[in-house]
Amino acid sequence: MKRTIISTISVVVLSTVLSGCMDKLEILPNDQIITENFFEEGSPEEIESGVNSMYQRLQSSYMYNLRMWTLDIVAGEGRVGNEAGGNGLETTQLSNFTATSDNSGAKELWRGPWAGISRTNWILTNIDKSPKISDAKKTQYKGEAHFLRGLYYFNLVRLFGDVPWIDKQQTASDDLQVSRTSKDIVYQHIIDDFSDAASMLPAVYENTTDIGRATKGAAFGLLAKVYLTLKRYNETLVAIDSVTNLGVYSLNRKYEWNFSDLRENGPESLFEVQYEKDVTAYSEFDILGQGGWHHEYMAPLASINIGGPWGNFG
């Protein structure tokens, strides 16, 4: 009994002392990395996870998991399959040039790249602060950020023309009412980003765990596509030759292998958005976009698939 009373008194006294000092103590989350010290305190693995976050937006349904390939329907190369209950109505409106201001497809195409752009600027603004990764890794990560920012903006400028050019991390004190930038200037920034990426990135990665990362060939390849879009044909040829001269790409023995899920990231591939094949880890419609939606949307209407099918392009 005496031991219980003493323990109780000790707890009460300690609680009183702590409550009296609480207003003088600054309690920090010492067991975790927070935004303010992420780059200064983060381990190499944590920094790499931040770099990887730049790629995640590519997997979004606002981008390559849905909206980017539905542009083929808008271009007249396919059609919306199952339109029952209004399925695909926004895509049908876009393809018929009858879209209204509340069209969800147009809204998502606009919103898709911006989170990715924000993350690339976050890396470019802060990566040099990290004392725990080598200069070579910092250069690689900057190259990946330049590549992805160029890709995100290349999608935006082709769809919307003049768009705001933002090349630094935004803070609460910044003016968020950003004006549009002339598409000619945006294109030059995109060219600069891909050129910087090509100078910073390796031609290949040694580890198979790095499959899907931007490479020198991917940067030269997209640079060629930008020049082709601008009808700057001589520069297009130079960029294409730069890809060939790397000596790391070749043609598949069979053309159909380019479309086989068993031969992803093959010898012809310059850059691919990666998805998780294991649906037990990520479902098709996982919010982070880890699971690919494509087979549900592309499967014939008569087939039986989870959540679908919709028979697009059927």
Score class of each variant (00 low, 15 high):
M63L: 15
Y64S: 05
Y64C: 09
N65L: 12
N65I: 06
N65F: 04
L66T: 05
L66R: 13
L66W: 08
R67L: 15
R67Q: 15
M68L: 13
M68R: 10
M68P: 00
W69P: 10
T70I: 03
T70V: 14
T70K: 01
T70F: 12
T70G: 04
L71T: 13
L71N: 13
L71M: 15
D72L: 12
D72Y: 12
D72V: 10
I73K: 11
I73M: 09
I73L: 05
I73D: 02
V74N: 04
V74E: 09
V74Y: 02
V74G: 02
A75W: 01
A75L: 11
G76Y: 09
G76F: 09
G78R: 05
R79V: 08
R79C: 01
V80W: 02
V80H: 05
V80G: 02
V80A: 06
G81C: 09
G81I: 03
E83L: 08
A84W: 09
G85W: 04
G85R: 14
G86H: 03
G86Y: 05
N87I: 04
L89Y: 01
L89D: 00
E90D: 15
E90A: 15
T91L: 09
T91R: 03
T91C: 06
T92V: 15
T92Y: 01
Q93C: 03
Q93I: 01
L94Q: 01
L94P: 05
L94D: 01
S95L: 07
S95T: 09
N96L: 13
N96Q: 15
T98R: 03
A99E: 10
T100R: 06
D102M: 02
D102V: 06
D102Q: 08
N103W: 05
N103F: 01
S104Q: 09
S104R: 00
G105T: 12
G105L: 13
G105F: 14
A106I: 10
A106G: 02
A106F: 00
A106V: 09
K107D: 08
E108H: 11
L109C: 04
L109T: 02
W110F: 12
W110C: 05
R111I: 03
G112I: 07
G112Q: 12
G112L: 10
P113Y: 08
P113Q: 10
W114F: 11
W114G: 11
W114T: 05
W114E: 11
